[in-house]
Design a protein around this nucleic acid. Structure first.
Ligand SMILES: NC(=O)c1ccc[n+]([C@@H]2O[C@H](COP(=O)([O-])OP(=O)(O)OC[C@H]3O[C@@H](n4cnc5c(N)ncnc54)[C@H](O)[C@@H]3O)[C@@H](O)[C@H]2O)c1
Ligand SMILES: NC(=O)c1ccc[n+]([C@@H]2O[C@H](COP(=O)([O-])OP(=O)(O)OC[C@H]3O[C@@H](n4cnc5c(N)ncnc54)[C@H](O)[C@@H]3O)[C@@H](O)[C@H]2O)c1
Lengths: 220, 220
DNA sequence: CCGAGCTTGTGCACAAGTTCACAAGCGTGT
DNA sequence: ACACGCTTGTGAACTTGTGCACAAGCTCGG
């Protein structure tokens, strides 16, 4: 129907949200048109790469002019699937879980906090962000009521796999894991991991071998 | 000196901390030897990749046997430069900054919290984690007293560049940025970025295009 | 209507990263 | 001493990602 069947490379997908963020800023500044050159500068990448990345989404630019910010923004949102909200369920109401729940930046960008759940009875019932912490037994119900949901694991590492299994059983199909542990899920479930200690160790490496250290691999 | 001058690829560097975490777990379990096959399983990667990655550090395995866990652990720490502690200074005592400051996992892995600083006078003096929040004017002094320091930016996006400049001026040579903004630093400074909203958007993409989604990348 | 000045979109060569496949080497048992 | 099973280390093929360079195409001024 679209004529665009070509698969978008993983490396490109990883950059799209960055372009999206920049486009939102440009739109807020009432800037109507942007060139690949300017976009590249703002994203900290090569202009040719920007053009190639955008070309995977479709032919949305105008030669001699550039890209229409609003139109590209619309197409970018479409491509990323953020035209609708993705409610987030946070598992674990500890330090990190509470910080995430209090973070306004998620709702702003289309990821409203749906619920926070925890296994600890002492935490259930306390308020965090805009919601009350719920028991694990409510998980399936909460997921059902908010589909499609993204699950966030903010529990200690040793229970991460267990929690992931519970999320999957509850019907969650996308998971973001903050626990420092390997989690495996069925093939149709999307999983990403963020490990802060790991990032610090990578910094440590490049500092120890300081001379030609481009520690910025996940750019900027 | 060592005979090992070959440059370690970025992709390999990004995986080393994961191997390190696994080796620590194995050592805790009193497991003396591990094969690339087993290590690969625990890290969720291909065994050949593990062998190639480890070969960049040196020839530490024994054919027919595997790798000595303690010895490899030592070499891995050496390679990553985490034989000594890297004190961390957190800038921004908001939701995220406080969660990070309270996080024991950093100290445990060799990144003790040295200080938290904030520009907001109302926050200066309050206690967070194990330390009192200090004013920005103390930054240079705090950095000098703890070198080598890793700076963590946990402030709103619009001031991230400003904060980065202050960190660099104070003598920080490695920065981890949590703000959703592009930050540029002089070439000899290491910089990495973690953007949680970006991760959620990548998940959103793979869910929207669900069919062949290997959403995992985060160098993990 | 044409030409000048830009900027896109992409073919192509090159670089980086991954995986296979297997020789080399170790340890054990006979 | 030797054969056998196991595992490493790595050349080489392959896949993925990057960046240059330029033709194609748009806009605008005259
Ligand atoms: N705090 C940080 O800044 C930070 C930074 C990096 C990584 N992390 C990681 O994030 C995770 C959480 O860190 P934290 O500091 O918030 O820890 P925390 O101990 O403060 O919180 C963990 C929470 O998970 C809950 N929990 C435990 N088992 C559970 C289960 N089976 N089901 C549901 N909930 C369960 C606990 O009750 C607790 O409320 C850890 O894996 C940590 O390594 C945290
Ligand atoms: N809270 C989260 O879970 C979360 C998640 C993802 C990303 N982030 C990002 O992390 C950053 C911090 O988030 P937060 O929720 O902690 O915000 P916050 O508003 O709670 O805290 C920001 C803190 O930075 C301080 N600050 C402001 N300007 C400063 C300056 N120039 N110098 C020093 N300190 C300054 C403020 O006083 C405040 O204490 C933001 O960029 C946010 O987008 C936060």
């Amino acid at each position: 129907m679209d004529g665009h069947a070509r698969r978008i490379p993983d490396a490109t997908v990883a950059r799209l949200p960055e372009y999206l963020r920049i486009l939102v800023e440009l739109a807020e500044q009432r800037i109507g048109t942007v060139s690949s050159e300017r976009l590249a500068e703002l994203a900290g990448v090569n202009a040719a790469k920007v053009r190639k990345d955008l070309s995977y989404l479709g032919t949305y630019g105008t030669r001699g002019v550039g890209y229409d910010v609003d139109y590209l923004l619309f197409q970018m949102r479409q491509a990323l699937g953020v035209t609708q909200d993705w409610p987030v369920v946070v598992v674990g109401a500890g330090n990190l879980g509470r910080a995430l729940a209090n973070y306004a930046g998620f709702s702003d960008r289309g990821f409203p906090l749906a619920a926070v759940v925890d296994v600890d009875d002492a935490k259930v019932g306390t308020t965090v962000g805009e919601v009350a912490v719920r028991p694990m037994s409510d998980l399936a119900e909460l997921v059902r009521a908010n589909q499609p949901v993204i699950g966030v694991i903010a529990t200690p590492g040793p229970v991460a796999q267990l929690v992931a299994d519970q999320l999957v059983a509850a019907g969650v199909t996308a998971i973001l894991n903050f626990a420092p542990a390997l989690v495996s899920v069925p093939p149709n479930i999307s999983l990403r991991k963020v490990d802060l200690a790991l990032e610090l160790q990578i910094l440590s490496f490049y500092q120890s071998h300081r001379e030609s250290g481009s520690a910025s691999r996940s750019w900027a």
